[in-house]
Design a protein around this nucleic acid. Structure first.
Lengths: 103, 103
DNA sequence: CGCTTTATTCGCTAATTTGCTACTTAGCGA
DNA sequence: TCGCTAAGTAGCAAATTAGCGAATAAAGCG
């Protein structure tokens, strides 16, 4: 779970996720949207894979990346739950303990 | 907005936010929950302040930090919106463009 | 098999981040 | 003012990260 936050910390990786939100793309297609060298992007892909945020699918010589929405969704939901945005929020120096951690 | 992601990237800072979710706390009270040196925590507070995630309130010699829920909420909502979790999710190599960016 | 394409891995450097100790600032009380 | 406490700043070392070019792996094609 912690890898998800790490993955989201970098702007380039957030942009990659944004691109993949539009459509699945090969590593090369994604790289074409950046000024960075391909090995640099490949490193970003590795971080996103380790976080489970994207899934590679090899077809021939190209590797198509797909956004793994559920992982991102779970991470955000965990945060939402940890802070209970939807509840009444009793701010102040005394309140109940939250049920879950952040990660 | 980008500072929010950076702030969330560190486990200690997430833990601070978690503590502040329970109740407002002074810098010293927060520091008591960690093994880190106080200046180290002070640095984390600075990052959280710059991200707008916490608000300091000086009362005498102590500084009480309060969780700024709305900022965190906005960041998460922006992500939710960027990925439109609540819509039907047309995964595949052709879909509509999202309205907003991530960060 | 060679050649091309696609993507990753291998070193390596520069920048960033995290942590510390020492010092400074600010408030409070004797 | 002196002493004490709370918090932040300055400066530095260690670890991590992001970036690159070169080399490598794997697949398709002549």
């Amino acid at each position: 779970m912690s890898e998800v936050y790490r993955a989201l910390a970098d702007p380039s990786r957030r942009r990659i996720l944004e691109l993949l939100r539009e459509q699945d793309m090969s590593a090369g297609e994604i790289a074409a949207h950046f000024q960075l060298a391909k090995p640099t992007l490949s490193g970003h892909f590795a971080v996103l894979r380790e976080a489970g945020l994207v899934t590679p699918e090899k077809t021939g010589t190209t590797i198509v990346y797909r956004l793994n929405v559920s992982v991102l969704e779970e991470a955000l939901m965990a945060l939402m739950d940890a802070f209970k945005f939807l509840d009444a929020k009793p701010q102040g120096r005394a309140s109940a303990k939250p049920r879950k951690g952040i990660g």
